[in-house]
Design a protein around this nucleic acid. Structure first.
Lengths: 281, 281
DNA sequence: CGATTACTTGAGCCTGTTCAACAACCGTGG
DNA sequence: CCACGGTTGTTGAACAGGCTCAAGTAATCG
């Protein structure tokens, strides 16, 4: 979904001397970390206090890539971000927060969601390694981002990107294309949630996840689920019971095997792909 | 899909210089709007209301302007497009078509949808006067656009816009912001379809439509539905029977009045807003 | 004016929800 | 080491919201 090529991870560990742009990069984090520890259900009420509080500063983790004096692509910029760690359940940002940065997921997974006044939650998307999130139209986040497992993200202050995009149409176009791919994925998901049955939704989700991580798992038929049943349910517009039951049913039908509840192995991919398209039940 | 593409014939925009008559015909652009809402260099940090989730281009009021030889804003480009009429049920483009143009709706309404292999249909969005559609990441349309009523659109060849965006970061950023607002609206709709009950969905739809057209109907409590029950049902992930029944129920509860089946008058807005948020039933 | 399409309403059913109990897993601390 | 509480996942039984099927009414168009 918010997916730029995930191919750049290898560059993430090189070290380089500090440069002018680092200064800007670093102070982004101070405002960043302030409102990041929201937990549980009441984060919407929170308004962050940029001045006070525990800015537990993570001494900059390994620096991205060798320096280039004139970064040219969105990737270049993103690879210069400061790295930040997020625990499972910890929020990277919450709906209503002032938006200061955009992020690229380095490892782990994030859950992007919105909640209704009465507490019902819709997971908009999951963000996996390589995905970019935080690109938005307004100055305030319209959804929340929470780690589903321990996760590392690279943070880039929006201001830097704004400036870059304002001067370089190529950057602006990359932002545009990233957004466009996002919309595309959202449309597909909307079709899924709006039209498909529980089984279809779950199977599409599993297959989609597998496809999305194909580069990582080397094309095996095994997929790790780096999120809870609740996350999956809220993503698919179902209840956890239905998710659990449907997984059990698929297991009983010998379409999948489940290990530890989190590792799914596709046994009968043909059957799964038929199920995803509504054939049989 | 093939059958749909047939609709495509009439006057697909040929690339040609903008002429005076074009401007006269279509001119619903307003430079005010353009500069206040879409331009500026710090796009990412733009101070524009987040409730803009549903806001697209405001249906700009006709405003005579001299044609400028060097158009600068997205609005300028769009106002130079060639006009095309679409009948109800006629397709502007269909999923799978090569994308040649982007469009702005001048009057009427379009229904943007995707269909599953087995025929189930999900309406992604409706496009009303002022809305821009056809901005996409790939070279092939990933959804179909069909008139729900007789509709006029202004067509602008993508190539022109591509060139403009490649040279002018402001244009690229406007494309980006347009897309971003789109994503925002889609997220809201996903929450609606994924979490809300039939009544909640329908009421949110009505209120949202009213809000979106507030500039046109002058803030009255009357909304025209320029689409069929089928369109609404496919938009909300319901059946036509449920849509019809729910409307009847709202009428029986004296929340709305219905005239000719297509004109809705809000009688008890307070109750409606409560219903939209899941209170009572 | 009849034919076609769009909308409404009813009756019964089914998918997925709700409510509830139980099992598995995990970190903590005795 | 195991007992413990807490969290997460599984399974069962009953319910209900929305769907399907079906018939009837209203609007539209040649």
């Amino acid at each position: 979904m918010a997916e730029l090529s995930a191919a750049h991870n290898s560059l993430q560990t090189a070290t380089r001397p500090a440069k002018a742009c680092d200064v800007a990069l670093i102070d982004c984090s101070s405002s960043e970390f302030t409102h990041s520890n929201l937990q549980g259900t009441d984060m919407l009420a929170m308004t962050q206090e940029p001045s006070a509080s525990r800015v537990r500063f993570q001494p900059a983790l390994p620096k991205p890539r060798a320096k280039s004096p004139d970064p040219r692509s969105l990737e270049d910029y993103l690879s210069r971000g400061t790295v930040r760690g997020i625990e499972a359940k910890e929020h990277l940002f919450a709906e209503g927060d002032a938006k200061s940065s955009i992020y690229r997921v380095l490892s782990g997974a994030l859950c992007l969601y919105k909640i209704l006044p009465d507490g019902r939650r819709q997971v908009i998307d999951f963000a996996y390694a390589g995905d970019v999130i935080g690109l938005e139209s307004g100055i305030v986040a319209t959804y929340s981002a929470q780690g589903t497992v321990a996760t590392r993200v690279s943070c880039l202050p929006s201001a830097i990107l704004d400036r870059a995009a304002a001067n370089d149409p190529r950057i602006a176009m990359q932002l545009y294309m990233t957004m466009a791919r996002n919309v595309d994925a959202m449309r597909d998901h909307l079709v899924c949630v709006g039209q498909r049955s529980a089984t279809e939704r779950l199977v599409s989700f599993l297959l989609g996840l597998s496809r999305r991580r194909a580069s990582l798992n080397g094309g095996t038929s095994i997929v790790e689920l780096p999120m809870t049943r609740t996350d999956i349910a809220d993503f698919l517009g179902l209840t956890i019971e239905t998710v659990s039951r449907t997984l059990s049913k698929l297991k009983a039908q010998r379409c999948i095997e489940i290990d530890q509840g989190t590792t799914i192995r596709f046994v009968d991919i043909v059957a799964l792909e038929a199920l995803a398209e509504g054939e049989a039940r």
